[in-house]
Amino acid sequence: MPDIAQSPQPKILVLATLAGGYAGADSTGQSHLDYPANTYVLPVMCPVMFPPEFFVRAFERGIDGIIIMYSGTDSPYKVEADGTAKLINRTYQLMKERGIDIRRLRLAAICTVCVKPFLKEVNQMAELLKGIGFVKNELASRNASAQGAPA
């Protein structure tokens, strides 16, 4: 069983497009600017490939915050801007249904050299998670209240 004590901080997952956020994260690295180490950036080609269930599953597995860093209208993919926006809306719906704080998922347009916006997004999410805590606790209390509540 995962031990919460071993993970002192909530985990942030960043799904970053190769043409945008991932390159932006690399730029941040090249500038040697610090941000919290509990941030995990995974490269994606285009975020439209993820169904809303993917995000809910991630939260349920213990990812406390997710930021999608896409390229917005600058994307090499025609569908990215609109498709991702739709995806987010649907995911928010699903999160609400599952009782997950929708602030745990954010969408940000990050360009290849967007060092400051990248840091801002990560730090904002880190601050937010400090306030609202682990997703596990949130899900646990929801389950508890769901069980306790009259059907």
Binding site: L13, L42, V44, M45, C46, V48, M49, F50, P51, F54, R57, A58, R61, I63, P76, Y77, K78, V79, E80, G83, L87
Partner: peptide
């Protein structure tokens, strides 16, 4: 283009972007 828009909408999970599959992402998230 490999954008994967089709991946998200397939009701049967029958399509994936080669080298960037949904199950690979799930494994990484886990």
């Amino acid at each position: 283009s490999g954008c994967g828009a089709c991946v998200a909408v397939c009701p049967n999970h029958a399509i994936n972007v080669q080298g960037w599959t949904l199950s690979q992402y799930e494994a990484m998230v886990d």
